[in-house]
Amino acid sequence: MITSIFSKSRPINFIIVFFIVLIAFITARIELIKGSITMVFVFKQLVLFGVCYASILLLNFIVSKNNLSNKNNYEILLFSLFLLAITSSTSHVNVIFSNFFVMLGLRRIISLRSQINVKKKLFDAAFWIAIAALFYFWAILFFVIILISLLLYSETKINHWIIPFTGVITVFLITIGTSIILNDNFFELFKSFPEVSYDLSSYNSTQYLVAITLLLSFGIWSSLFYIKSIKQKKKAFRASFNTILFAGVIALVIIILAPKKDGSEFLFAFAPLSIIITNYIEIIEEKWFKEVFLSVLILVPFILLFL
């Protein structure tokens, strides 16, 4: 029953996901509201909610455009459920914007598969990831995926290796120029710096422990089958699937390095994890097991709302 609803792309799926994200967003905001609610506050939250939902629509576009799934909507359902499982993932403004720009960068990296406008795509990917790093420094680690993609496509042209760095330098120069004009200071707009923390004490609560266990257990299990299935994909698509896998690994590194572990850092992992688990759901042959697998992913986030 549950699997049949999202097994095909339907408008109702996006409506369901919209309300799941809305619940996650409102739940997080209830904990953040300490004073009176103003129009400015409401407008700001509407913008942030729009970016969160736009990230899900962008994920759907990336998946459908690059054939990363079998034309279903499991990935957007999973993304919204992850937001619900860790509602604090929507609480950090900079991380929300950073993740959105990272996904724009990943979209361009994955589209390298067509080998059309390669130079433009490499520049765009680096440009978006550099902007993401302005909001959250460790997002710059996703730049490594561009270099890995060049290796996957056995790229030998020197200019293709140089272009991504010009994208980053362009953002750096634009930011400095804007900072000088607005603040008469070179680095005033650079709000994100390379800080690190390995203190995991903030995760020491029932909600975090259950949610993280859910993500890790289902993610690792699905990844084992995902890695195995890459070899069975058409050669032209293997690089795209490998890119998603590396994105998941880098997201895990960011979670470990995050200077402030408030749950928002998990947002970077939601998109690649959604695609990886979606691919596993698609290969499950036993219908009852597929229903149970997806039911757990749906029920646990809702149960966590009452803990």
Results as ranks from 00 to 15, higher is better:
99 N>R: 02
255 I>F: 09
62 I>E: 01
114 S>F: 13
58 L>W: 02
241 F>G: 08
59 L>A: 12
15 I>E: 05
138 W>P: 00
270 F>P: 00
105 G>L: 06
56 I>D: 01
231 K>D: 10
52 C>V: 09
145 I>D: 03
301 P>R: 12
264 S>Y: 02
4 S>T: 14
35 G>N: 13
104 L>Y: 02
184 D>C: 10
296 V>G: 13
102 V>P: 00
121 K>Y: 06
94 N>R: 02
293 F>E: 10
296 V>N: 06
262 D>Q: 08
250 I>Y: 01
187 F>P: 00
113 R>N: 06
142 F>R: 00
35 G>V: 13
60 N>M: 06
296 V>C: 14
170 T>V: 14
61 F>S: 14
253 V>I: 15
152 L>Q: 04
118 V>W: 00
276 I>M: 05
50 G>M: 07
170 T>C: 14
118 V>C: 01
236 A>C: 09
74 Y>L: 05
281 I>L: 13
179 S>E: 09
244 I>D: 04
99 N>F: 06
213 T>L: 12
75 E>Y: 05
76 I>K: 00
179 S>G: 13
196 V>A: 14
13 N>Q: 07
69 S>E: 06
275 I>H: 00
4 S>H: 03
187 F>N: 08
108 R>I: 08
241 F>M: 10
228 K>Y: 10
138 W>M: 07
228 K>D: 11
187 F>C: 07
188 E>T: 10
71 K>L: 08
1 M>L: 10
145 I>V: 14
112 L>F: 06
22 L>C: 07
108 R>P: 00
147 L>N: 06
146 I>T: 07
60 N>G: 11
284 I>N: 02
175 T>F: 09
119 K>H: 05
258 A>N: 02
164 P>V: 12
27 T>W: 05
85 A>G: 04
38 T>Y: 04
110 I>D: 07
114 S>Y: 12
159 N>S: 09
258 A>G: 05
269 A>S: 06
87 T>Y: 06
45 Q>F: 07
30 I>H: 02
196 V>F: 11
166 T>K: 01
59 L>C: 08
57 L>H: 02
52 C>K: 00
142 F>A: 05
136 Y>K: 03
68 L>K: 01
104 L>F: 06
176 I>W: 01
184 D>N: 13
259 P>Q: 13
183 N>V: 12
242 N>G: 11
266 F>Q: 05
256 I>T: 11
256 I>L: 09
126 A>H: 04
99 N>I: 08
141 L>W: 05
263 G>E: 08
97 F>A: 10
38 T>I: 11
111 S>N: 12
197 S>V: 13
196 V>E: 08
33 I>G: 04
